[in-house]
Deep mutational scan, measured.
Amino acid sequence: RQGFVPAAYVKKLDSGTGKELVLALYDYQEKSPREVTMKKGDILTLLNSTNKDWWKVEVN
């Protein structure tokens, strides 16, 4: 499932696989259909980080 999360809630990881991955630093509950819920410690695939406030991710 793809959607947006606050950029301040995730940290980029060095995956070494060519995929950009991020680590969820905090729990986040989606507040609109365009967002996704994540739990602290989740590893997500980063799809787009051009917006400084909201990053598009895919929940694996």
Rank of each mutant, 00 (worst) to 15 (best):
37 T>H: 05
35 E>V: 05
37 T>F: 04
34 R>V: 12
37 T>G: 10
27 D>A: 07
40 K>S: 07
36 V>S: 02
26 Y>V: 12
11 K>I: 15
29 Q>G: 07
48 N>D: 15
46 L>E: 00
2 Q>A: 11
52 K>D: 10
58 E>G: 07
40 K>Q: 10
36 V>F: 13
25 L>V: 07
10 V>F: 05
34 R>C: 14
56 K>D: 04
24 A>V: 08
50 T>L: 09
54 W>Y: 06
29 Q>P: 06
19 K>D: 09
60 N>F: 13
5 V>P: 01
6 P>I: 03
59 V>D: 06
45 T>R: 13
48 N>W: 07
53 D>Q: 13
56 K>C: 12
39 K>F: 10
18 G>W: 08
30 E>T: 09
5 V>Y: 00
33 P>V: 10
39 K>C: 10
34 R>Q: 12
26 Y>A: 13
41 G>L: 03
25 L>D: 01
28 Y>P: 00
59 V>K: 13
18 G>A: 11
28 Y>K: 00
24 A>Y: 01
21 L>H: 08
57 V>H: 00
53 D>L: 15
11 K>P: 00
34 R>K: 12
44 L>Y: 11
16 G>K: 09
36 V>H: 04
59 V>S: 14
21 L>V: 08
39 K>S: 09
16 G>W: 11
42 D>I: 04
48 N>Q: 10
44 L>P: 00
57 V>P: 00
41 G>E: 02
12 K>Q: 08
42 D>W: 11
26 Y>S: 08
55 W>R: 00
20 E>G: 11
26 Y>I: 10
5 V>A: 03
52 K>W: 06
10 V>W: 01
45 T>S: 08
23 L>T: 07
8 A>I: 11
46 L>T: 00
17 T>S: 13
4 F>E: 03
39 K>N: 08
60 N>D: 12
1 R>F: 07
27 D>G: 06
44 L>C: 08
27 D>R: 03
30 E>R: 13
18 G>Y: 10
54 W>I: 03
16 G>I: 13
42 D>Y: 05
4 F>Y: 15
42 D>E: 11
26 Y>G: 05
27 D>P: 06
26 Y>L: 12
48 N>L: 08
50 T>H: 10
52 K>A: 12
38 M>H: 02
25 L>Y: 03
19 K>N: 11
57 V>K: 00
13 L>T: 05
43 I>C: 05
11 K>G: 06
36 V>W: 06
45 T>Y: 12
15 S>D: 12
46 L>H: 01
37 T>D: 04
52 K>H: 11
36 V>T: 06
57 V>W: 00
5 V>D: 01
54 W>K: 02
58 E>D: 04
50 T>C: 09
28 Y>E: 00
44 L>H: 03
40 K>H: 05
3 G>C: 04
51 N>M: 09
23 L>Q: 13
15 S>L: 14
10 V>L: 15
17 T>N: 15
47 L>N: 02
25 L>P: 00
2 Q>W: 09
32 S>M: 07
45 T>A: 10
47 L>H: 04
15 S>N: 13
11 K>T: 13
54 W>C: 06
45 T>C: 09
51 N>I: 05
31 K>P: 04
4 F>V: 06
19 K>I: 13
22 V>E: 00
32 S>E: 08
40 K>C: 06
29 Q>S: 11
46 L>Y: 01
11 K>Q: 13
35 E>W: 03
27 D>M: 03
20 E>S: 14
49 S>R: 09
4 F>S: 03
59 V>T: 15
54 W>L: 03
9 Y>C: 11
9 Y>V: 06
35 E>F: 06
40 K>D: 03
57 V>L: 03
60 N>W: 13
15 S>C: 14
50 T>D: 15
20 E>M: 12
29 Q>R: 11
16 G>N: 15
12 K>W: 07
37 T>M: 05
9 Y>S: 09
20 E>W: 12
37 T>A: 07
4 F>I: 07
6 P>D: 01
36 V>I: 14
45 T>Q: 11
59 V>L: 12
3 G>W: 04
53 D>P: 02
18 G>L: 09
5 V>G: 01
43 I>P: 01
38 M>G: 01
44 L>M: 14
8 A>D: 09
1 R>I: 09
38 M>C: 06
16 G>V: 13
36 V>E: 01
31 K>R: 15
45 T>E: 09
2 Q>Y: 08
57 V>F: 01
10 V>P: 00
47 L>K: 05
58 E>Y: 05
43 I>F: 05
21 L>R: 10
56 K>N: 06
16 G>P: 15
55 W>H: 02
12 K>F: 07
57 V>I: 07
34 R>P: 05
40 K>P: 03
26 Y>P: 00
9 Y>R: 05
25 L>F: 03
8 A>F: 09
60 N>M: 15
21 L>Q: 12
36 V>Y: 05
40 K>R: 12
27 D>N: 08
13 L>A: 04
26 Y>K: 15
12 K>I: 10
33 P>S: 11
52 K>M: 11
41 G>V: 02
29 Q>H: 14
46 L>S: 01
9 Y>K: 07
59 V>W: 09
37 T>S: 15
42 D>L: 03
6 P>R: 04
42 D>K: 02
24 A>C: 10
46 L>V: 06
29 Q>E: 15
6 P>W: 04
33 P>H: 11
40 K>L: 05
31 K>F: 05
17 T>Y: 14
46 L>P: 00
5 V>L: 03
34 R>H: 13
41 G>C: 07
38 M>V: 10
60 N>H: 13
29 Q>W: 11
22 V>M: 04
58 E>R: 09
14 D>N: 14
32 S>P: 04
17 T>I: 14
10 V>M: 06
30 E>A: 15
23 L>M: 14
47 L>E: 02
59 V>I: 14
24 A>S: 05
57 V>C: 03
15 S>P: 09
26 Y>M: 13
29 Q>A: 14
26 Y>H: 12
50 T>K: 12
36 V>K: 02
20 E>R: 14
45 T>P: 13
1 R>N: 08
13 L>C: 11
32 S>C: 08
38 M>F: 09
5 V>E: 01
5 V>Q: 01
31 K>S: 09
46 L>F: 03
13 L>P: 02
54 W>S: 03
34 R>E: 12
48 N>M: 07
13 L>N: 03
24 A>D: 01
34 R>F: 13
33 P>M: 08
12 K>C: 08
42 D>H: 06
59 V>C: 09
31 K>M: 11
23 L>N: 02
59 V>Y: 10
